[in-house]
Amino acid sequence: MPATTTPARVVSELSDAQRAALKVSYTVRALRDRRPAAVLRGPDVRPRHGDVVAAAVTSVGRHTRLELADGRRAHLFPGDLVLAAYAARYAPDQFEAVPPADLGPCHLVAAGGIAARVVSAHTAMTAPTCLRPLGLAVDGQGTPITMSALAGPPAPRPLRPIPTLAVVGTAMNSGKTTAGAALVRGLSAAGRTVGAAKITGTGAGGDRWLFTDSGAREVLDFTDAGLATTYRIPVERVLAAAVGLHRRLVVAGADAVVLEIADGVLQPETAALLARDELRSLVDGWVFAAGDAAGALFGRERLRAAGLPVVAVSGRITAAPLAVREAGDRLDVPVHTPDDLADPAVAAALLAGRATAAERSA
């Protein structure tokens, strides 16, 4: 790598072989066809959330595969070169991680391409996959490439409100994405042109592909708004991204929208979002995903305390008929299985129950 500038901040060219070998992760998929030609490195380089990093795999741990731009999960081996983004990770079932303060060794903390340093982990987790950063990816002027620079274009404010359902839950793995995908199927079968977006979480394509396969006309997530993850991002930035994604779905032709909010109602950014009027005005009805009856009751009450209309409960709780009965005896909203939500009559009824209010405000 021939080097230029000062030893404290060195711009080094990547060889043609290195560029070709880069495994471009889902999170930075916008760079698949325009791979960086150089990296910035040196003791004065301080990574920030959203900076794109080229790194070598030094050991393979928890994440044995990297999700590529097209959704394929590529096997990882020591010596592989990857293109990822620095960001924080919030995953109680896996890793808690934060962007490092320097270009020293770090970890691959999400298969979608998130580089960070693990600060805590679930006891079931094996050691993380380790990375050795080559440097921050830079453009032709030597400026670091950021997720913000890769964001899609903004969309104008819709002329009228579009009926919107949102799914939120107790925690990760509570069944939110499954419920959201079922709603997409049900609304599509009911004749709606559905747009779907995951507005918080960690960069990964699995949920996007599921929404697409379920029939959504257009699917977006926060990475399309320039965020690698939403953990430890100011709520104003996350909210602006959510509103922008909703507008883009409407411009793409959606006449019904399904949103998913990742993690759980106690996660800091989720809790902050649920308290914002801008999100209240965007969403007409909420489906709460829970793993058990107690979680369903807690979530219903927490959303209502925030002034958010809960129209149904779903999630992993629906796998247990006894838990459904326990919750049903105490809830005044229906508990729907994913199959229920995929029924066009059920999905349309949930949407119609709040669509009238949206239309009156137009």
Rank of each mutant, 00 (worst) to 15 (best):
G307Y: 08
F211L: 15
V10L: 15
T58P: 05
R46E: 12
V138H: 00
A21H: 05
P268L: 12
L274I: 08
E301H: 13
T143Q: 15
V167A: 10
H75R: 15
G50S: 07
V265F: 08
V167M: 10
P43W: 13
V118K: 03
R32A: 15
G140E: 11
T129N: 06
V167H: 06
H336F: 14
H75E: 15
A137P: 00
G201S: 07
A137F: 03
Y86I: 09
V250M: 03
P105F: 11
V118S: 03
G112Y: 05
G112K: 02
R62S: 14
V313P: 01
A127I: 09
L273S: 00
A189T: 05
A240T: 13
R280Y: 02
A240Q: 13
T318L: 08
E269P: 13
L131Y: 07
G328R: 10
G142E: 10
T178F: 04
A228K: 01
A137E: 02
G315Q: 07
A293W: 03
A228I: 05
Y86V: 09
L210D: 11
H246N: 00
A296E: 04
R316D: 08
L308V: 06
V11Y: 00
V238W: 01
T58M: 12
A151W: 09
S15D: 12
L245V: 02
P153T: 15
H246S: 02
P92H: 06
D255V: 01
V346N: 05
A20L: 12
P92D: 10
P234L: 06
H107S: 13
D329F: 15
C130T: 15
Q267N: 11
G295A: 05
D102M: 11
A358T: 08
P99R: 05
G113F: 05
T164A: 00
R330Y: 09
S174W: 01
T178R: 00
P154S: 07
T178N: 04
G328Q: 10
G299R: 03
V45D: 11
D329A: 15
H49L: 08
V219G: 01
